[in-house]
Amino acid sequence: MNPRRIAAAAMAAGVAAGLAACGSDDGSSDSGSGGGSSIKIGIKFDQPGLGLKEGSEYTGMDVDVAKYVAKKLGYSDDKIQWVQAPSAQRETLISTGQVKLVVATYSITDERKEKVGFAGPYFIAGQDLLVRSDDTSITGPDSLKGKKLCSVTGSTSAQNVKKKVPGVNLQEFGTYSECVAALASKGVDALTTDNTILAGYAAQDQYKGKLKVVGQPFSEERYGIGLKKGDTDLCTKVTDAVKSMISDGSWQKFVDDNLGPAGFKPGAGNPPTPDACS
């Protein structure tokens, strides 16, 4: 154990401390009546390239999509109140009316459709693998034998890969940030989840050139905009906004701006045709 390794371990502990610190939100955005003048939109706060909070700035593809849709609904950027929408709380935030829309890597599934409504999809993502740039041995789910894989506890991606590759050596963490740290320190060989999330991490400054997305998606995740179940009027408006976003070139710009730096190209089926509202 030389001093450099111990220093590196201390840094990892620092990363963990940072993660522990960002778990809670003071919820100040939930107070007040809101009224008709502003709109509350749920996004991820910790997903680089998709929805990321840095100081008071919000960046990412989901943020750009949300701003575009809000504008079409008649709300300018300064009328948007951003609310953190962790995966487990998205349905609750919508059904209790704490947010009007959720744009947070929200895959349209039948189970979720029983609780909330969806407009979209506005993007077709797929489960993929993130590896170190110098690693040529992993080319897809078939080459994972004997490799150490990382994902998030209980996530769809983790369940999916366990089914796809029986007996896979899977390490699960609470968030993807820990997986990326483990991948960079060679603790694991690959990280698996939606290719959009992977591209977001690969495009981060500290990992640029060090990590790459394999580019062999093996699932289909249809990202939708979550809204209150049965609100057909709102759903139609949001769907129209998504359609015009795709046709006027904004969609392509949002993808290139946020995920392009990592050399990410949207997979088959993109840009998608939004479903009709029911």
Binding site: A12, A13, N169, F173, A182, S185
Partner: peptide, 24 residues
């Protein structure tokens, strides 16, 4: 939480103190 994460990210991956080849 910090101790838990540090046991894997720090102890296992950086210091190499793995207690088994099987991750589980």
């Amino acid at each position: 939480t910090l101790l838990m994460v540090a046991s894997i990210l720090g102890m296992t991956y950086i210091l190499g103190m793995s207690l088994s080849d099987d991750q589980q």
